[in-house]
Amino acid sequence: MNHRAIRAIYLFEMARTWRTLLQSIVSPVVSTSLYFVVFGAAIGSRISQVEGVSYGTFIVPGLIMLSVLTQSIANASFGIYFPKFTGTIYEILSAPISYFEIVLGYVGAAATKSIILGLIILATAGLFVPLHIHHPVWMLAFLVLTAVTFSLFGFIIGIWADGFEKLQMIPMLVVTPLTFLGGSFYSIDMLPSTWRTLALLNPVVYLISGFRWSFYEIADVSVSISIGMTVAFLAICLAVIWWIFRTGYRLKN
């Protein structure tokens, strides 16, 4: 294992985060605070409680997930796309480093960044609403698992994309709508039955449901299904990345 190479990539990517601190950390925190104002205060005043939890408190796990998902994808996709765009990928490909180590460096850094962000948002939420986390270990486990899985997904998008447009396309057109429709701001039990059935096809529902369970012990679907779905998505991403490196898809001629 080339530990120094993994460390070099990881620190290089993290350095980019510190360099763009305003855009990386401050901006998501500000937008989350705005969600609290709009959803928590404005809409929350008309919805008293959801499954025994105040509305403002209820949306916290969904808001964290929303940021963790989008930021994981954005960080990892940009992290690997940028060297492709500038051509510096030549150095990564010619270095004595395995594919697994490359992924570990890039995905590790992207996931770390979004976990830090998730925790900052959690702390920010604490300023607006009272929070009590029933299962902190599970909460962290879901956070890490989701950050890693979606960073892997972002890595795939970054390799697939051959332009900035494509880089934005999947997060904008697929992930954000799925997150909004995945029960970030409501319980899917509140939906009419047809929509509820359809919502169960949305993988994000399982992530948010499991994460919310770790906070309040309330869930749209069983926790084991949530974990199972997340791990399944993780396995799919790993399989795709394994294929990408085996074939050199969009990396090697």
Binding site: R4, A5, A8, F12, E91, P96
Partner: peptide
């Protein structure tokens, strides 16, 4: 970075 990438201390 290049030195680290090639596994050198």
């Amino acid at each position: 970075f290049s030195r680290g990438l090639f596994g050198k201390p």
